[in-house]
């Protein structure tokens, strides 16, 4: 649950376990930091046709260890740039988790949602209370809340805003 905007509604792209950053954005594209350009190659390592399948607002639903591998923040940027509104995973790799928090990509850790929701399902995600709802069956799942410290970063609008405020306080 990362932003205060409340509810996200979208269709699910269901992926497997261990979706690493080389699959999310192959290294050969790492010569730009432009999110939209990167998004044009989202998950090409897994399925070259993936970028064409994504509609704005879609949701990625993945298994364990999503975002493992390299530290490239380009992975979080590519997901945002492609128009994905949120990533739900059974678990996240450590560096990716930090990068998502820092760049303001909504992520939700919810193994139950991964087990129960199938590809193409329309779901809603409430970023405030962590409620994931299958809009076709009405079934509901609860995500892990963020630790308080991260909530502070998130509510500041990401790490840059968080640090900026602190630098301003120090300067005063």
């Amino acid at each position: 649950m990362i932003c205060e905007e409340g509810e996200i509604v979208g269709n699910v792209h269901k992926l497997g376990d261990h979706i690493n950053t080389d699959l999310i954005i192959p290294a050969t594209y790492l010569v730009t930091s432009d999110a939209v350009e990167l998004g044009g190659h989202l998950l090409e390592g897994l399925d070259p046709g993936f970028p064409k399948k994504v509609r704005k607002g879609d949701i990625i639903l993945a298994g364990v260890n999503f975002g493992s591998g390299s530290s490239r923040e380009h992975a979080a940027l590519a997901i945002k740039g492609a128009g994905i509104s949120c990533v739900i995973a059974a678990s996240f790799a450590r560096i990716f988790f930090r990068n998502a928090i820092n760049t303001g990509l909504p992520i939700v850790e919810c193994p139950e949602a991964y087990r129960s929701i199938s590809d193409g399902t329309r779901i809603s995600v409430n970023l405030e209370d962590g409620l994931v709802k299958n809009l076709e069956t009405g079934e509901m799942y609860y995500a892990q809340p963020y630790p308080d410290f991260m909530r502070d970063i998130v509510s500041s609008g990401g790490l840059i805003e968080f640090v900026k405020k602190r630098l301003e306080i120090e300067r005063d």
Binding site: G69, E73, N102, L159, I160, L167
Partner: peptide, 30 residues
Amino acid sequence: GADSHTCTYGALGAFSTGMGSTDIAAAMAT
């Protein structure tokens, strides 16, 4: 380091770990 294999330096007894570019930007400043 903004590279996941920054953990290499633990071999020499350092506490070292990889992060993303935004984390590194913040550390470069503060």
